[in-house]
């Protein structure tokens, strides 16, 4: 079965990526693998889904009817490496990520996770900024 991977961060962009991912896997008849990772080096990482947030994600995915899997790798690697690893392992045919506008200075200082993903992951990537149009 084909696989679509979604890189999920709990915010509006992540939600947009998730919705596009659901739509793509439905159209392709593919399994959806949702990746929500953390470097695990801070005591608290609010981007790492736990408790209620994780339960809501499972409910939402179950309601969609698409076969899915949620992975939360924590290996001390950054998100680009985690996604590349998952994509390689599942031989995914598409990766969906949410992106946002960044200023050049912001990118210079903090780097850009999206840019690293685009450069490092070996599969077609769908970068989305807003939820999919209603179909």
């Amino acid at each position: 079965m084909a696989v679509v991977v979604v890189g999920l961060v709990p915010n509006a962009r992540g939600q947009a990526a998730l919705e596009h991912g659901l739509r793509e896997s439905r159209q392709r008849g593919a399994r959806l693998v949702v990746v929500n990772s953390s470097r695990g080096d801070a005591l608290v990482d609010e981007d790492f889904l736990q408790g209620d947030g994780l339960r809501r994600l499972h409910e939402e995915l179950a309601a969609s009817g698409v076969p899915f899997q949620v992975r939360q790798p924590v290996h001390g690697r950054d998100v680009a490496e985690e996604l590349a690893a998952v994509v390689a392992e599942t031989s995914a045919e598409l990766l969906v990520i949410g992106v946002r506008r960044r200023t050049p200075v912001g990118k210079l200082l903090m780097g850009s996770a999206a840019q690293r993903i685009l450069l490092e992951v070996d599969c077609p990537i769908l970068a989305v900024k807003s939820p999919p149009p209603a179909s």
């Binding site: 953390s38 695990g40 005591l43 736990q50 290996h75 001390g76």
Partner: peptide
């Protein structure tokens, strides 16, 4: 022993 994983607030 850098903790892997994080605590929920």
């Amino acid at each position: 022993r850098l903790r892997r994983g994080s605590v929920q607030v």
